Amino acid sequence: MKLRTENAGMSSGMILLFAVAVGVAVGNLYWAQPLLANIAAALNISQSAAGILITVTQLGYASGVFFLVPLGDTLNRNRLIPVVMAAASIALFGCGVAPGYTLLMLSLTAVGFLTISGQLLIPLAGDLATDDQRGHVIGSVTSGGLTGILLSRTVSGMLGDAMGWRSIYFLAGAVTLILSIILALRLPRERKTKAVGYGSLLLSIFTTVRSHRSVQITLVLGACCFSVFTMFWTSLTFLLSAAPYSYSTTQIGLIGFVGLAGALAARRAGKLHDKGWSVAATGAGLLLGIISLVIAGVSDGSIYLLLLAILLIDIAIQGINVLNSTRLFTIVPEARSRLNSAFVVSCFLGGSVGSMLAGILWQAGGWYLVTAGELILMAVALMFWIFNRSVLEFKQPVK
C-alpha cells in the first residue's frame, strides 16, 4: 500500500498535539453530563428530558462520523481537520446562546455532528506512525480522547458552579477555534489521492465491514462496552446529586479525576497489542468491567467503594477501546478512516442507547436497576467474546 504521508514516525511533540486535539474534540460531547441537573432546573425540564440532550449529541456524532470521517480516506486531512474544528466551534457558541430546550437540543446535535476531528486524527496518527510504534501511538492519541471525556466533566462541573452552565460552551468554542488554527499550521501535507465518488465511499464502509468477520465482532464489542460506559456515567450524575451524597456540580466534576487515572492506566493497552496480546487483554478487560459493576452495585452509599468501581470500569472500558481501535487499523490499513467511522458509529449508537436507558432505568428503579442493566450488557459482550475469540486472533509481526 502506498501511503499518502511520509511514514517516518511521530515525534513526542506531535503525539501530544494529536492527543490534546482529540481530547478537546471528544470532550466537546460531554460538557453537559455533570450539568444535567442544573440544565433541567434552568430550563424547567425533567431529568429524563435532560438525559435526551446527551442522546441527541451522540446521535449527531454518530451521523457526523458516518458522513464526514470517511472523507479522510480521500481528501487532504491537513485541510479537512481544521475546517471541521472551526465549524464545531461555531456550534459550541450556539449552545452558549441557546434560549431554550429545543434550540439547545438542535445546537448540541450540531456539536455532535461537527466535532469529529478526533476521528480523523486517530487514523492519521496510524498512517504517520511506524509499524513498531503504531500500537503505542494509537494508544496515546486515543487515550487523549478518553482523557478529554473525563476532564470535560471535571472542568464543566467546576465552571458551571462558578459561572453558570452556559459559560462552558463559550470556553469550549474558543479553545476549539484556537486548536483549529494550530492544526492548520502544523499538520503534515498529504499527497493527492485518486478521487472517489462520495456515494461509493460511504458504500465501501459496509462492504469492508461485511468482508471481515473480525471487524464485525469488534464493532459489536465496542457498541456493548460504550453503552455500559455511557449508562454508568450518565446515571452516576443522578446518583451523586441525590441523597445520601447530594454533591454539587463541582464535586461531581472532581469525580472525573478518578476516571482519569483509569484512562491513563488504559493508555498502555496499545503496547499489549504490539506484543500480540490484544484478544486475551480484551477478555480480561470485559471481566474487569463485570467486577467493577458488581462493586458499584454493592457500594450502598459508600463513596470509597464507588470510587474504586469508577477507577476499575474506566481502566476496563478505556483499555478495551484502545485494543479495538488498534486491531481495526491493523486489519485493513488502506481503509483506516472508513473502519474508524464504522467503529465510532457503532460505539456511539450503543452510547446513545445507553444514555437513554440510563434515564429510563433510573426513573424506574434507581441505581440498582441501572447497574443490573449494565451487568447484563457486559455479560453479553463477554459471552460474545468467548464464542468468537478465535476469529479475532491473527498473527502480529514480530518486533
Rank of each mutant, 00 (worst) to 15 (best):
S235A: 01
L35P: 03
N78C: 07
M1H: 12
A8D: 12
A266E: 00
V84Q: 06
G359E: 05
Y247M: 15
V84D: 09
S346G: 14
V322I: 06
F67W: 13
G64L: 07
D300E: 01
L361W: 14
L286G: 02
T109I: 12
I331R: 14
I310M: 03
C95Q: 02
L201R: 13
L369I: 11
G64K: 04
L146T: 03
I181P: 15
T55M: 09
L16E: 12
A284P: 02
L104R: 04
G359N: 02
E374M: 09
C95N: 15
L183D: 08
L71E: 07
M10H: 08
L240F: 09
G27T: 06
A37I: 07
T237R: 14
I178K: 11
H136E: 05
L201C: 14
L121D: 08
A381R: 00
V20D: 04
Q33D: 14
L124V: 08
G319W: 00
S143I: 01
V294S: 07
G13C: 05
S346A: 04
A88G: 14
E190K: 13
P99S: 14
V228K: 00
G27E: 00
L377T: 01
V344C: 05
A42D: 09
P244W: 10
Q251N: 11
A87M: 07
N78G: 08
I149H: 03
A280N: 12
L323N: 04
G173W: 15
A280M: 14
G222S: 09
K271C: 06
S143T: 04
N340E: 14
T115V: 12
F67R: 04
V175M: 08
A174D: 07
K399D: 06
K275E: 08
L236M: 12
I217C: 13
S292A: 10
G100T: 10
A91P: 05
S143Q: 12
W165V: 13
I181E: 12
A269F: 10
A50C: 13
